[in-house]
Each structure stands twice: as C-alpha cells, then as structure tokens.
C-alpha cells in the first residue's frame, strides 16, 4: 500500500499528461496550466528539506571538528547574511543584496569557470597527443574550431573561420544528431519504465 499508491499516481498522471499533449482543446490547455501551477506550489516545501540538508551537513562538520570545519562557518555565515539581507532590504537594483550578487557572487562564478581554461588545456595536452588516427581527428577538429574563432585564425588563412563554421554546422551536427537520437530513445524508454512502474528506484529502499 505504501508503495502502490505513489506508483498508481505516477501511472495515472503520466498517462493523462502524455495524452493531454495530443488533445488540442481549451479544457486540455487549462488542465495543463493549472497542473503546472499546482506542481510549482507542491515543490515549495521541498526547499525546507534542501536547506535542512545543507545546514545539517555543515553543522555536523563543525560539531565533529572534521578537517576544514572552520570553512563551514564561512558557508553558514554567508548563506545566513545573504538571506537576511535579501529578506530585510529587498532585491532591487543598486541595493546591498544585488551589489553582493554583482561584486561578490558573479565575479567568483566567472573566475571559477575562467580557471577551467587552464585545466582544460592541460587535460587536452595529455589526452590529445596524436597517438591514433581518431585522436588526431579530435585534435585537428578542436584546433580548427579554436583558430577559426579568433582573429589570428583569419590572419593565418582567410578560409579558416568558414571551415570552422562548416565543421560546427555539418560533421559536428551529424554526430550530435546521432547522439541526440540515442539520448531520445533512452529517455523515452526510461520515462515509460517510470510511468509503468518498472523503474522504482525513486521509491527508495530495496525496490
């Protein structure tokens, strides 16, 4: 009973909304809009679980004096301060909350992604050594696309930006399309397994 009711709900709602897509009526569209609105509201209390999980993890780390526990204070303090500022001062442009976003959060985020350029380059050096014809194709393709995107590429050879664009639009698209096709078949099969109750890992426990 504990597991059958959720499985029945998934089956009924899954079939209903799969069929809804093929019913072009105002009633069907209203059902879709209302359900989406309701589902967003249903997910609201889940935020409490997410916050609880994060806070609990760091509180346990501090209590047990695990390695790097001092940084958990930084984490909890930053989350608490940002939340308090947002709730007390509002989120309007030019306020403290948005300034913290613009001058603390956004620069740190773009720097995090920027340093990945160095790690990707060093990883590429190790992975791209032309040890086989396939690895050579990978290397050449990356090289042409990178050179085609910068002015030096066009200065070296005028046709390079065009070749780079063609590689993105033709052979790259062919492989991406093949992969997307496989992902689509896999996703559709997994969705069907969930709706029909064959995939039950989301129920937790041993099932």
């Amino acid at each position: 009973m504990k597991k059958n009711v959720p499985l029945a709900i998934v089956l009924v709602l899954g079939v209903l909304f799969a069929v809804q897509y093929f019913v072009p009526s105002r009633l069907s569209q209203r059902l879709y809009d209302t359900t989406l609105e309701w589902d967003i509201i249903i997910s609201i209390p889940a935020l409490a679980i997410a916050v609880d999980s994060l806070v609990r993890h760091h509180v346990v780390r501090i209590r047990q004096r695990r390695k790097g526990w001092g940084y958990s204070w930084v984490y909890l303090g930053a989350a608490a301060v940002m939340t308090a500022i947002g709730f007390s001062g509002g989120i309007s442009e030019g306020g403290l909350f948005m300034n913290l976003f613009t001058f603390a959060l956004a620069p740190m985020q773009s720097t995090m992604f920027a340093i990945l350029a160095f790690y990707m380059t060093s990883a590429a050096y190790r992975a791209f050594r032309a040890r086989s014809p396939e690895a050579t194709v990978l290397l050449l393709s990356a090289f042409v696309v990178m050179l085609g995107l910068i002015p030096v590429g066009a200065a070296l050879w005028r046709g390079l930006p065009g070749l780079s664009e063609w590689m993105m639009q033709v052979p790259n698209m062919a492989s991406k399309r093949g992969i997307t096709f496989g992902i689509g078949l896999g996703s559709a099969a997994t969705i069907l397994k969930i709706i029909l109750g064959l995939e039950r890992s989301w129920l937790g426990g041993s099932e």
């Binding site: 504990k2 597991k3 249903i42 689509g184 969705i191």
Partner: peptide, 25 residues
C-alpha cells in the same frame, strides 16, 4: 513524502514523453 514526489514525477514524465519523442527522435 512519496505522494508529492509521485505527483511531480507523474506530471513531468507524462509531459516529457511526447516532447522527447518529438524533439529528440
């Protein structure tokens, strides 16, 4: 707790099935 999870899972899987077949296949 499985009830709200089941509702969300049912709705989104139902919506995703025809969309996935159309867009990805």
């Amino acid at each position: 707790m499985l009830i709200p999870i089941a509702i969300t899972l049912g709705i989104w899987n139902g919506i995703a099935l025809p969309l996935t077949i159309e867009a990805d296949i």
